[in-house]
Amino acid sequence: MSKLYRMLAALVILGTVSLSASATNYSLWINGRTGGGQIGNYNSFTYWGPAGTAAGINKKAVNWDGRGHIADQNYLVREALDCFCTGNNWCYIAAHSAGDLMLGYTLANYGGSSRLKKNATPNSAGQCGNTDGSSQVGWNIKWVDIAAGAAGGSELADIGNINEPLAQDLKTTTARALYDHNNTRNTWFYMYAGASGTVYSAVLPGQDDEVVAYHSSGGVSGSAGAGFCNPADWFCNDLTMGTAVNEGGRAKWSKHSVQFRDDNESFNHYSQGNWGGIISVVRTDMVNHAN
């Protein structure tokens, strides 16, 4: 899906919601492994960087512990989506690493459920009150930006001995079987894949950002990972841009489009406490287009 088409689609949605004077847009940021932000506090951006940094309209941090099983921590994401993405309100969403797995799981398993419309005024636990008692199916989401997506898992989890529930979920075959990755409830996932790997990431096939390989950060389908690279690498199949089938014939998941491929191998996996790495590219896109 091209950037122009994406912008036109957003304008159509904006024109629709503008019929209601009370409509508000929000930019939700869903963290990955290790967490760090205060759970229930949508203004706590510790995981990402300084809270004062621009990161899309009305930005909110959707904090979960970054250690527990996706299924166990998922209620926190659902509460945030209920708060800010129901009724007349709409959301842009950015997610990093395991936040991709978390959001995909949420939409596939709960995106068709009935949700009470909320007032976007959270209490200290991060829960919002009802508006008029009416409900809707799923959430109002315009599109999703994914930095270093781990919905395809990581080979580091495959070989690791970390006694942590999330690490078990991040095994490549487990992550890919956790939910139907093709069922995004018609929400577009725009993938941003970093390629600034290092020596210890040799276990990761193809191009990688030190933690996840292109097969995951590029939204490549299948029951297991495979090696995908930049076009300059002659010894590996290319990760293609957009929704195009990758070199070698492996397709991307439905509604997944590679928006950025790190051809210059400049961006690693980490925020570095300052919206760094591949997150910086997503943040720029959110500033420019989440409005």
Rank of each mutant, 00 (worst) to 15 (best):
D263L: 11
Y75H: 14
Q127A: 11
R6W: 01
M286C: 10
K171Y: 12
A177L: 08
A80F: 05
N288H: 10
S18N: 13
Q272S: 08
M191N: 14
Y26I: 04
C229D: 11
C85I: 12
F84P: 01
A94K: 01
Q259A: 12
T284F: 01
G129L: 08
M241S: 15
I39V: 14
Y110A: 04
M102T: 04
F235Q: 13
N183R: 09
L19K: 09
M286D: 09
T106A: 14
G32W: 01
G37F: 02
A202K: 02
D82T: 13
Y26D: 05
I57G: 09
N163E: 10
F45L: 06
G273L: 06
L166N: 03
G68K: 04
N58V: 06
T46D: 14
A120Y: 10
T106S: 10
G160I: 01
R67K: 13
A195H: 01
A244P: 14
S44E: 01
A148H: 04
M286W: 06
S154P: 01
F84G: 04
I13M: 10
T16Y: 12
D180A: 12
F84E: 04
S257I: 02
P231M: 06
S257D: 05
N274T: 05
R67L: 11
L14C: 02
L28Y: 02
R261I: 09
T53V: 12
G35L: 03
D263V: 12
